[in-house]
Design a protein around this nucleic acid. Structure first.
Lengths: 233, 233
DNA sequence: TTACTTTTGTGCTTTAAAACATTGATGAAG
DNA sequence: CTTCATCAATGTTTTAAAGCACAAAAGTAA
């Protein structure tokens, strides 16, 4: 257990989340029942086969969610940031988890029990509507991704991943360095390629002046060119 | 316009659909407002960029839904059968369509206007819940598919597609012939491969005695073996 | 029918990406 | 500081799948 102070309530009060449509009373009720957890970098939050027992909100940190594929090869299907949710698909499908969530840096989560979530869905139509919209949007991303992961070539896929990481986590203060530090293997698993190819292609991008590399620090030097590589496929 | 008589109400009364939770009055109200359409084989029902104006139910026929990828290559993301819905993702995400739906045989659809759908979502929590569950399940399929399409080899992907077609459309009276007749190109677009490779691999399966081919008629001879090929990747 | 287009089937070539092997960094643990 | 382990980098080989070219078959329309 860490000593760091985390504002767990940020999950509920965030104006962009599905909770924005809740009444103050509903929010208070959730807050009273939050079950919060801390995870160290590398720790598993849930894994394939686990039964979901509530809606997990990532309050602080970063999390990768991946599926095991053929021969144990993992495909990263989501990168979560605060304040976002993880594991909700299995919860609402009433299935066991089909993916594994691992903290890629020290992280904090809050869990809202299943019963409370369903109670809200039944009592607040706006909440249901925002969940439906969130799922429909997410499904759109997933389908887009299926097409790009299968059709783009290595350079296109890697470029797309880098742009995706930028969009998700943004830049450090220098306005160029990606605010997320992944291993080459994770970058490969996100982009559907082998680790060697991720390394090779990152080097290629660096020597072309599109990005800068310093260990796990990746600096985007020419975003327009990176986007062009991504779009060309 | 065809003369064939279609029972359009099957969309609403189907016990397995999301409408099963509606009251008789709600169902009657929908039925009064149904907008029905007939499409000939090959006709477009909606295309990428169109604005959805309601929930489309496929009442009769078969429909493929695909996205245009790199270089215009199409990836089939859904195969719809009666009684199922198409185009609902864009509707609920409040986006334009990100995919195109084409009838692969003469088909009939009913459209439930957007306003009526949203009115139901607001008034009937069970309806919302079943929509949420449907989306969560669908997202699960999509994520599974992303992994198999990217990680399995050609034989595995094709075998998976054939099993998928069997699960979706079932068999003819002989209990072996797939009850759907796709071009080799469509089979390829479903399985993320080129047409030549689909043809080649189908021939290979046939000569191995796993399937039988007679034009577009595909007979599954050894389902267990086909599933094994699919699982091995 | 005939002509024309589309679809299917094959063989051959090329290429992108995986697999493998090895070495050099980097970093944590004793 | 040294040792061990993980991670990154790079070159080489192998292979799966795409690309291409062409011929045969099957639909489709005039």
């Amino acid at each position: 257990m860490q000593q760091k102070t985390i504002n767990f309530e940020n999950c509920i009060d965030n104006q962009k989340s599905v909770f924005a449509v809740l009444t103050p009373e509903e929010k208070e009720n959730i807050k009273r029942h939050l079950i919060c957890n801390l995870y160290k970098k590398g720790e598993i939050i849930f894994k394939e086969g686990d039964k979901p027992n509530g809606l997990i909100c990532l309050s602080d940190g970063k999390v990768k969610v991946f599926k095991e594929g053929v021969g144990g090869r993992e495909q990263i299907i989501r990168m979560a940031k605060p304040v976002g949710f993880i594991g909700y698909r299995a919860l609402f499908a009433e299935e066991i988890h089909h993916a594994t969530a691992v903290a890629i840096e020290d992280s904090a989560t809050c869990l809202i029990e299943k019963e409370i979530v369903y109670q809200l869905l039944r009592s607040n139509p706006d909440f249901s509507l925002s969940i439906i919209k969130a799922f429909a949007t997410e499904l759109g991303f997933s389908l887009d991704r299926t097409v790009t992961l299968t059709q783009k070539h290595i350079r296109g896929r890697l470029a797309e991943s880098l742009v995706f990481l930028k969009d998700t986590y943004g830049f450090e203060a220098d306005n160029a360095t990606l605010k997320v530090y992944l291993s080459r293997e994770d970058i490969a698993n996100l982009s559907n390629m082998t680790t060697s190819n991720a390394i090779r292609t990152l080097s290629a991008f660096a020597s072309e002046g599109v990005i800068g590399i310093d260990g796990r620090k990746i600096k985007i030097i020419d975003l327009a060119k990176l986007e062009r590589i991504s779009d060309l496929g």
